[in-house]
């Protein structure tokens, strides 16, 4: 059974220095509030795992939380670079970061293998790609039945995975819908899982066609954090704040401006009010 606890407590219990950590959410439902709580708690030497690092890993990397990044696309979607990630890779600021770089197909298969309890994933991929040359965790296996050569990557098995979802019931069962990304696989691949939610409801309500329901006994902690995915979005609750994504480009280009933004919007903001940590947001009607 999941414990329904404040976010600060969940992060204290399940996120430790040196952990392998996945915060998933494919453009949608990105657990920003949880990532910012990890920054506030000053975690270090994390191996951060995520298909699309997005702004939240830019912030965590810029604050020196990570020693390694396992990823497949590290940009600001539709805008350009993640400047804190680039500064860490190109100049080692605030500390050097080791990269383990994959394609989306590889990451998705590796999470799936982790959720299935398998040691590795086999798939048709990395054909002629130089990524094979720079990532020793990309191998080849031969199908014992057809002889076809397939790409192989190790399963992703995080110590803790964190996702954001629309709602949970009072027992801690969780529902997410809309673009559901790789979150189910990330939760089931991990030793521990934390889910932040928009709200707790009496009844999860009849699931929509694309809903994913995660049973309470597959989760360790549920935390009520309304707006916890901003400036990404929660389908049915609020829209993606594209203006904030565009604004991040200028904020993150300059080290001092980045640090003062973090001071103002993350360190001075209470964890219980993540909506206050993000500029340019607008509440939408349900």
């Amino acid at each position: 059974m999941a414990d329904i606890v404040p976010l600060e407590e969940a992060i204290l219990r399940f996120v430790h220095d040196g952990d392998r950590l996945a915060l998933e959410g494919f453009t949608h439902l990105i657990p920003f509030a949880a990532g910012q709580e990890i920054i506030r708690q000053g975690r270090r030497d994390l191996t951060l795992i995520r298909m699309t690092p997005d702004l939240i890993y830019d912030q965590m990397i810029g604050m020196g939380c990570a020693s390694k990044l396992i990823f497949s696309w590290g940009g600001n979607p539709g805008v350009g670079s993640l400047h804190r990630l680039r500064d860490a890779v190109e100049h080692g600021w605030p500390r050097p970061i080791e990269l383990e770089e994959h394609s989306h197909a590889a990451m998705a298969n590796a999470f799936d293998a982790g959720a299935a309890g398998l040691p590795f994933a086999a798939f048709r991929g990395y054909v002629g790609s130089d990524l094979r040359r720079v990532n020793p965790n990309i191998a080849t296996v031969v199908c014992p039945f057809t002889g076809e050569a397939l790409a192989a990557v190790p399963a992703i098995r995080p110590d803790t995975s964190i996702i954001h979802a629309q709602r949970a019931d009072r027992d801690g069962n969780v529902l997410l819908e809309g673009i559901v990304g790789v979150q189910k696989q990330a939760v089931l691949a991990a030793t521990h899982a934390i889910v932040t939610v928009e709200e707790i409801v009496d009844d999860l309500a009849p699931p929509s066609v694309n809903a994913v329901v995660l049973p309470t006994w597959a989760i360790d902690a549920v935390c009520v954090v309304p707006g916890g995915a901003r400036p990404s979005y929660a389908f049915g609750y609020y829209d993606r704040d594209n203006v904030a994504y565009v604004a991040w480009d200028a904020i993150s280009r300059d080290r001092d401006r980045f640090l003062s933004w973090m001071d103002e919007h993350v360190f001075s903001a209470p964890a219980s009010d993540p909506a206050a940590t993000v500029p340019h947001t607008r509440e939408l009607p349900r």
């Binding site: 494919f26 453009t27 949608h28 298909m51 979607p77 539709g78 805008v79 989306h104 197909a105 998705a108 298969n109 999470f111 799936d112 798939f123 809309g178 673009i179 559901v180 990304g181 790789v182 189910k184 696989q185 066609v209 694309n210 994913v212 979005y233 389908f235 829209d239 993606r240 594209n242 994504y245």
Partner: peptide, 25 residues
């Protein structure tokens, strides 16, 4: 036009939305 590959507009106007592993596999 979406700004990102995962804007809500893409999901709400789609016939269906599948998980990312399903999409790639």
């Amino acid at each position: 036009l979406p700004l990102s590959i995962g804007d809500g507009e893409l999901c709400s106007t789609a016939l269906t939305t599948v998980s990312v592993p399903e999409m790639f596999r």
